[in-house]
Design a binder for these strands. Structure first.
Lengths: 154, 154
DNA sequence: TCGTGGCTTCAGTGTCGACCGAAGTACCGG
DNA sequence: CCGGTACTTCGGTCGACACTGAAGCCACGA
């Protein structure tokens, strides 16, 4: 007997969340992202997420706030007593990756500052120079790649 | 009255360690890296690191083991009762960055798996497809950039 | 003005990992 | 063997953080 699609999807969501948990995103936040990427219909209320992901209302609230703030999730409010609907904002996923690349490139500022402190003693600076060269190369190449990205509208 | 070079260097080491602490490297491990990048002479014993960085012998031992294992620090043993010497292995810094980029690209395997689970329902897959396209693009571009790296000897 | 439902906030709990320092281990010279 | 040194391992402590659930806080409808 085969496993249903929804069962396999929730297993996938768990793997998805586990990956981002290693990058510092709370487990429940990752589950929300994975779930909102594949759920049907595409919009969910906080209460539905709480039930579906078996997480407390507080955790859902905190993580939704975090994700909305990061731009990855959009909150749509409705008039009256109706609960707000949340949906993934997949267009903003590029920002997530951009931040990652920026963090990598930003090390260059550190190595540069170190090199300045070393000025006047080139022999002592050779070790740091190797590292600095590497990040300098990254800082020149990566942004160029980013510009060539299909529909890099910014 | 101006601040001495060594004082500013230790401040720089602290910033250096703080940056990598955000990426999951223990604070003391980051301090060892920063220190070994700029110290003179270039080799230090565990005891010297312990004193210089004001860290316990246990922490130094654990972190050195981690860094040596990662290839970023080289241990040089000497005969007799002489303490081993540790030095930075700055050539291996590329591996650190490579692992970072690999981790980023590896998300593609997740999105691909998700897309397979979605086969037969293209409408439901549009959100995930946007993300998948992004990582697929990354997975084709980044390795190419890496190959163009000056002296990419591997 | 009250009641109700949706959401946020917050104190409390548990877990995890970095760190310390002491005890233990390995190694060598004598 | 013994003594001492270098290093590792390990129990214990501390702080940080994710998560929970309940209390509090709107905003709306009646």
């Amino acid at each position: 007997m085969s496993v249903g699609r929804e069962t396999r999807l929730s297993a996938w969501i768990e793997r998805f969340a586990a990956h981002f948990a290693e990058e510092g995103i709370p487990l429940i936040g990752g589950r929300i992202l994975g779930y909102l990427l594949v759920c049907q219909p595409t919009e969910r209320t906080a209460a539905e997420l709480s039930q579906e992901l078996e997480a407390s209302s507080g955790s859902i609230s905190t993580n939704l706030k975090f994700l909305v703030n990061a731009g990855l999730v959009t909150k749509r409010t409705r008039r009256g007593r109706q609960a707000a609907q949340y949906r993934i904002n997949e267009k903003r996923w590029v920002d997530l990756i951009q931040r990652k690349l920026d963090a990598l490139v930003s090390v260059r500022e550190l190595t540069e500052a170190g090199m300045r402190l070393m000025s006047g003693d080139p022999e002592r600076a050779v070790r740091l120079r190797t590292v600095d060269d590497l990040y300098t190369w990254l800082a020149t190449e990566l942004p160029a790649v980013w510009e060539r990205r299909p529909s890099s509208s910014r």
